[in-house]
C-alpha cells in the first residue's frame, strides 16, 4: 500500500548551534581541520540526559565502521547536571567521516564542550621545517652565496 507524504515546513525538531561560528561553518571546516577529542564536558537541563550514551561512529571509504560507546558515568547521588569525561584513549576524531550520535530526550538541551587537538595537513610542514624561511635567509643559499648582496631585494 502506497502512502504519499504531507509536506510541511516546521520548526526544526532538533536545533543545533555552536558558539562563535555556525554549525554549518564548522561542518565545512572538517574538510581542512581535524579534531581529536581528548576530553569533553557535558551539561544538560535534565540530569537523565547525561545518562544517555553518546555513540561515536567512524566510517572508512572501504566500508569499515568503528563504533565507540561513550558511557557517561555520573554519581547517582550528584545533583549537578554536568560531567567531565576523559576520552583520550577512545580515539575519537572529528574528520568528516565520523559522527557523534546522541539520543535527545524530549524538550531537553544538551551542551557539549569538546577539548580537542586540532590538526591540519599544513601543520606537518611546520613541524618538519619550523623555520624554513629563517634558515633560507640566514643560510648559505642567500646570505653567503652569489645573491648575498641582493638578499634585501629578494626577501
Amino acid at each position: 500500500m502506497i502512502f504519499s507524504p504531507t509536506i510541511t515546513i516546521t520548526t526544526p525538531p532538533v536545533t543545533v548551534s555552536m558558539t562563535g561560528i555556525t554549525y554549518a561553518e564548522f561542518i565545512q571546516s572538517l574538510g581542512t581541520f581535524q579534531y581529536r577529542v581528548l576530553q569533553f564536558y557535558a551539561y544538560s537541563d535534565d540530569i537523565n540526559q547525561l545518562l544517555q550514551p553518546i555513540n561515536y561512529n567512524e566510517y572508512q571509504a572501504t566500508g569499515n565502521r568503528r563504533i565507540v560507546f561513550v558511557n557517561p558515568e555520573i554519581d547517582p547521588f550528584q545533583s549537578q547536571k554536568s560531567l567531565y569525561k576523559d576520552v583520550k584513549d577512545a580515539g575519537i576524531v572529528l574528520n568528516g567521516q565520523s559522527n557523534v550520535s546522541v539520543n535527545l530526550l524530549p524538550n531537553v538541551l544538551i551542551k557539549l564542550q569538546l577539548f580537542c587537538d586540532r590538526v591540519r595537513i599544513t601543520d606537518m610542514m611546520d613541524s618538519k621545517v619550523p623555520d624554513n624561511f629563517k634558515s633560507l635567509i640566514e643560510g648559505e643559499v642567500v646570505q653567503d652565496a652569489f645573491f648575498g648582496d641582493y638578499k634585501d631585494l629578494l626577501l
Binding site: 520548526t11 532538533v14 564548522f26 559522527n99 524530549p106 557539549l112 577539548f115
Partner: peptide
C-alpha cells in the same frame, strides 16, 4: 593545537530524537 569546540543541541519536540552530529555531507 589545543582547541575547544562548543556545541548545543536542543530537542524541540515531545519525542526522543536521535541526532547525528559532526558528519560532513551526511544525509
Amino acid at each position: 593545537m589545543m582547541n575547544e569546540v562548543v556545541i548545543s543541541a536542543k530537542n524541540n519536540t515531545a519525542e526522543v530524537q536521535q541526532v547525528n552530529l559532526f558528519q560532513y555531507a551526511n544525509l
